[in-house]
Amino acid sequence: MIYAADGSAWAVRAYPLKDEHGKVVNVIDVCSDISEKIRLRAEADRNSRLASLGELAAGVAHEINNPNGLILLNTPMLRDVLIDALSLFADHYQQHGQLELGGLDYQELRDELPLMLQRIEGGAERIKRIVEDLKNFVRQGEVDLSDQLDLNEVVKAAIRMVDNSIKQATDHFEAVFGTLPRGQGDFQRIEQVVINLVQNACHALADRSAKIRLVTYYDAENKCNILQVNDEGSGIAPAALPHVTDPFYTTRRQSGGTGLGLSVSARIIREHGGQLEVQSTLGAGTVVTIKLPITKEGECA
């Protein structure tokens, strides 16, 4: 096998030509382009690995979710107990002077215990998000595309869901809604995609002066509804850009990214016959474009 300058792979077979005495007098070389065969084999291997990974992820998600649910269920009660206990600690400190529990004096109890509980809750919520990402990654099956879908209403609902994240990330958020024909699709799954894209945009911003802008419009030529999510964030490095929709690929590992959000989003859009495209300039921002056909049988170019 040899590789051409354009990256294509070629299989080479040599057939000797012999004379009447059995001596090789010539050779016929037959070259076949096997690039597609190699690509399909690699894709089959990758799908097989992902299927195995999906089974593992489903088991892990279940085993983690149950004990983490207990943490989330009980921390509000612990918070209430802590508030009452700190009041008692304060009274004791005023009446009797120094107080020490578990090796912590009163000042440390007052300052550190609320932070400890806050970190526990934050960690549990992070685990919950990771489990949800794993469950979404594993979730497969037929998508019901028979329902009427108003993309503008989906986007508005998603914005309401992440309103707090938007307010914490930027002072400059804008959503511009064009006139769209109704399409067909699953409202909640497309809402899940929009929520993920807006949250990614929020995480990408360096400060509150950077902008996030959402725009919807209708592409009459290709009969597709379009959503663009534009952020003025940190952007994506050119080397990373081709991998942003790969499962478990993330540039935010240290801040809690699982690398599943865009992968799941891209799959949902494909299930709807659409496309998810990412364009980015490092240091300048990112534009994610969703294209959704307005008919179940349609596909967006």
Rank of each mutant, 00 (worst) to 15 (best):
V81S: 07
G59K: 14
H92G: 06
A58H: 08
A58F: 09
M77V: 15
E63Q: 10
F89W: 07
P67S: 05
L78K: 15
A61M: 05
N66H: 13
E63C: 01
N74M: 11
N66C: 04
N66R: 12
D91H: 10
P76D: 00
V60F: 11
D80G: 05
I71R: 01
I71G: 01
N65F: 11
A90Y: 08
D84K: 10
N68I: 09
L72P: 04
Y93N: 10
R79H: 12
G69I: 12
L88T: 07
A58I: 04
I83W: 11
P67L: 05
Q98E: 11
S87C: 06
I83P: 00
L88I: 10
Y93P: 00
L70T: 14
S87M: 13
F89E: 03
P76A: 00
D80E: 14
L88D: 15
Q95E: 11
V81Y: 11
F89N: 05
A61E: 02
T75A: 02
E100I: 02
I83R: 15
M77C: 11
I71P: 04
G97S: 05
L99Q: 02
L78I: 15
I83A: 13
A90L: 12
I71K: 01
T75D: 01
E100R: 10
Q95D: 11
A58L: 11
I64E: 10
V60C: 04
T75Q: 00
M77P: 07
L99C: 03
P76W: 00
Q95M: 14
N74W: 09
I64T: 10
Y93C: 07
L70V: 14
P76I: 04
H62L: 11
G59H: 05
T75L: 01
